[in-house]
Amino acid sequence: FEAKTSGSDDLKAIISAISTLVEEATFVATAEGITFRGMDPSHVALIDISWPNSAFEKYECDSDIKFGVRIDEFSKLIKRADKKDSIEISISEQNMLLVTVGKNKKYKMRLIESSATDTPLPKIPYDSKITLSSSRFDKILGDVQVVSDYLTIHTSDSKADFSGKGDSGEVVIDLEKDIDEIGEISSKEDSIGTYSLEYLNPVVKAVGTTAGQITCEFSSAKPLRIEFKVANIGRIHFYLAPRVES
């Protein structure tokens, strides 16, 4: 198995997103590419990543392989890459991950026993969909966070608003007013869902500007799915379970 990226931004974004949920990550490499799927320890959020072979400068995988890494250690190595540096990974016979950063930095990192289980994906319908720039979404989360720990998303016909309510006050952000930065709003059914900023904020910051656009899909009191559109990567899906009336 051998994979070489062109540039380091995508891998940094992926590792950073995963680091918001887990300390140890198991990746699966097949001839098709590299995948990761995992939940945070409290099973509130799930990340599903599929990175196709076509997105790599060089990719070779003769037989399926699982490899586990400590995310903080892997992240430290990846961060030594400049934006344009390629990162090449392969696995040695001694169960070490060989990481070549740029032209001349050759790291060896100990792999961990992979505790991978087959995590399914939530099976849910998505009634509503909002596409907007990731920087706009990041600002909205900041706007809501000053009064609340939770973001409420509400769609009605083809209108949407984000809101938050806390002890000190509340805020409503009407998306119709800044249509320039909103790509698309659609709803098959009026939907309202409330989601924890404790999980949303870190992942949106982690993927940051690497994702130009994001798509939020949800239904009333059902998980939110955010798709981050990162140029070279097939799929980064972040699922977040809702706050519900109990």
Partner: peptide, 11 residues
């Protein structure tokens, strides 16, 4: 009362 649900409830 509001509570945090688990993603596994939706598998």
């Amino acid at each position: 009362i509001r509570g945090q649900s688990s993603i596994t409830n939706y598998f």
